[in-house]
Amino acid sequence: MESSIANHRAAKLPRVDWIDAAKAISILLVVFHHAQLVASSEHLSWDFLTRLDRLAQPIRMPLFFSLSGILAGSALALPWKQLLKRKVVFYYYLYVVWMTLFWLYCRYVQVELRQPEMGQSVGLLVSMLVLPRSGFWFLWMLAIFFTLGKLLDPWRGALALCVLVALALVAEMISVPLPLRAVRNIFLYAPFFLGGAWYGRQILPLIQRRPLLLLALGVLSYGVMMLWLRLGMADMPGTGFLLSIAGLLLAIGATWLLCRSETIRRALCYIGRNTLPIYVVHGVIINTAVAAMLGMSLQASLWIIPMLSVLAVAGSLLLRRLLGPFGARWLYSADGLHMALQSFRAALHTRGILARQS
């Protein structure tokens, strides 16, 4: 009985279009957010777009982590050795590679407009191996969440999820400096990732059977939470968490509605299946483009943020294609690392044999 349950959990979830589409919406919100942040720091954004970005704030990362958790459920049933190799090492390797490349970019190509200290110090680069200070913290946190999910696997269930929610509510009320913000985010987003991993298989059929009800609940609950904020209740404990839950319902319901158009569904699914290349490169493209705009003395305009977002997504996907097999092996996966380690072990083994023979 236990082995059949384990086999069911370890079975990979079949590809679901609306999950890919929801991933696309999440990454597009992330790109829009970073475009708005960089542009507004240089006074190139309109207040309207800043307010729009704030409306999406409770949605983008909870949605991203919930979807990642749903897709991670089967991996958490793997033995420790396989999980570490396939997920933990994979995400931490990608984090180190892209964080280092970004540091080099800031040091030798273009100063990071929002964090000018980035690239200034080798000590900062070393410290970021432990605590992220850049936009790549999502990769770092996925490595932690896979490890945490495996550690908590014997206690998975409603009680453990309630404890995680309680910790998230506490973390929500704590303000921390930038170096510790990533640690705080672990507590904020753990319920979404692990909730998706533990209950994703049960939730998916409900979503697919009642999408209209989910959309209605999302619109209603998000509207109620917006009214709650207008009444000055933003500092009430649990407000941020409840707003994220309402945002999740709204985003999933809206995804189903958008997917009713075949053209939109195909476009979103394509983006959703390529979120990693977009995530790791879009920030560099946005930073470079805004720096170029400053050189041209452009003024704030409504078109700047949408243009930056489209440029960042298209440029990230184009770079992925241009990098070809090298990128696929070294920059978007850990295959190159595993191959290098295998070659190194083989060389040591051969050297040992030759030494014994001599």
Rank of each mutant, 00 (worst) to 15 (best):
L83W: 06
M225G: 00
A289L: 15
R107N: 05
A77L: 09
M99K: 02
V290T: 04
Y199R: 06
P179R: 07
F192T: 00
N185F: 10
L213I: 12
L124N: 12
S358Y: 14
A267I: 11
L83G: 02
R201E: 06
G247T: 01
L37C: 11
W103M: 03
H33V: 10
A160M: 13
I174H: 03
S41W: 12
L341V: 14
L113S: 05
R133H: 08
T147R: 06
G315Y: 10
Y189K: 03
V89Q: 03
L348P: 00
L212D: 14
G295L: 10
M141Q: 13
H338D: 03
F146D: 00
F90V: 01
A72V: 01
A312L: 02
S309R: 08
Q36C: 10
G272L: 04
W155D: 01
R181N: 10
I203R: 09
E117V: 08
A39L: 15
L302G: 04
D53R: 15
D335E: 13
S127I: 06
H338A: 04
V89R: 03
A347F: 05
A158G: 07
R210K: 12
R114T: 10
Y108C: 01
L152I: 09
Y108R: 04
V284L: 10
L249H: 00
S26Y: 12
A24P: 07
L298K: 08
E172C: 00
G200M: 13
S301P: 01
L63W: 08
M1D: 10
Y105N: 05
F145Q: 02
K12Y: 05
S261E: 07
L178S: 05
L76A: 13
L83N: 07
E2D: 12
F102P: 00
A346L: 11
L243P: 00
W228D: 09
M118V: 08
A291L: 02
F65K: 00
V111T: 07
V31Y: 01
W140G: 00
R345F: 11
A254Y: 06
I5T: 13
R86N: 06
L341F: 05
P79V: 07
L49V: 12
I353M: 14
M141N: 11
F193G: 00
T275D: 06
G157W: 02
P116C: 09
W303N: 03
H349T: 09
V122P: 01
T147V: 14
A22S: 14
S121P: 09
V165S: 04
P154S: 04
F48R: 12
L164F: 04
W303K: 02
T239A: 06
H8F: 12
L294A: 09
G283I: 08
R266E: 11
G195P: 02
P58I: 14
